[in-house]
């Protein structure tokens, strides 16, 4: 039963998500024009970004730790977490785009700072992967990637979260959508929204650990061959 002990938090996250995926469709939501039932996307679209932020934060933490300790294991943590964070960012953009089509009338509103910020953030991380793949030497790659990641993290936070707060945006939480606060705090939504955030973050971390462990095995096999 040793494997169960390592698995408990993963299954807990899966259980929470099962609740979110089912009850999130059945529970009653505030009846509002335009959003109608699509407000339920709050349980699925928004946690994608929370998971991305968490994984990117975890990634930059390991980049800092790498520069301090110069241990290659930190580099592997940083890389794997950034990859899964990027995956969640892609899903956030894709789901947001679909939601926008049915509420704002377009797949992409070019004047919305949050949308453009999200696209820029993903490009910043795309550059991180390009940088990694461009350097042959392991230690050099790890060092440069770690330094880049330390710049990338605050940049993506600035363009997706901080800057849109002071600009006109269709997203709640920007300077012109103060009224939205009333609905953000809706208690019916909160019952599902908070577990959703926790559940998706746990799932993101689970997928990250699988990628990390896979890469670790691959590296040790390569070292044996050499």
């Amino acid at each position: 039963m040793n494997w169960m002990r390592k698995l408990w938090w993963k299954l807990l996250g899966a259980g929470i998500l099962l609740f979110v995926l089912t009850y999130g469709l059945i529970c009653s939501v505030p009846p509002l024009d335009i959003t109608n039932e699509t407000i339920r996307n709050l349980f699925y679209h928004v946690p994608m970004w929370f998971t991305m932020y968490t994984l990117f934060a975890y990634s930059v933490y390991h980049s800092i730790m790498f520069l301090r300790k110069l241990n290659m294991d930190h580099d592997l943590h940083a890389q794997s977490a950034a990859e899964i964070g990027f995956l969640f960012g892609i899903m956030g953009i894709a789901t947001g785009s679909l939601w926008a089509k049915y509420t704002w009338g377009t797949y992409w509103e070019p004047r919305d700072p949050k949308l453009n910020g999200a696209a820029i953030a993903l490009l910043i991380y795309l550059a991180y992967f390009v940088l990694r793949s461009a350097i042959e030497d392991e230690t050099k790659r790890a060092r440069l990637a770690a330094v880049y990641n330390i710049f990338a993290f605050p940049m993506q936070l600035a363009v997706t979260y901080i800057m849109p707060k002071f600009m006109l945006s269709l997203h709640p939480g920007s300077s012109d959508t103060v009224n939205f606060k009333k609905y953000d705090l809706d208690s019916q939504l909160r019952v599902v929204f908070y577990p959703a955030v926790i559940g998706w973050i746990i799932l993101g971390f689970w997928i990250f650990t699988i990628l990390y462990r896979y890469q670790k095995i691959k590296i040790s096999q390569q070292n044996e061959e050499n």
């Binding site: 494997w3 390592k6 698995l7 993963k10 299954l11 899966a14 998500l17 099962l18 995926l21 089912t22 469709l25 059945i26 689970w206 997928i207 650990t209 699988i210 462990r213 896979y214 670790k216 095995i217």
Partner: peptide, 28 residues
């Protein structure tokens, strides 16, 4: 019906994740 279908699909995906997880544990 849809809610149950989503539940089944998600349970299937999680079961598979557990399967890969254990496979990697064995490799380690």
């Amino acid at each position: 019906v849809v809610v149950t279908v989503i539940g089944i699909i998600f349970t299937g995906i999680v079961t598979y994740l557990v399967y890969i997880d254990r496979k990697i544990s064995k490799l380690e």
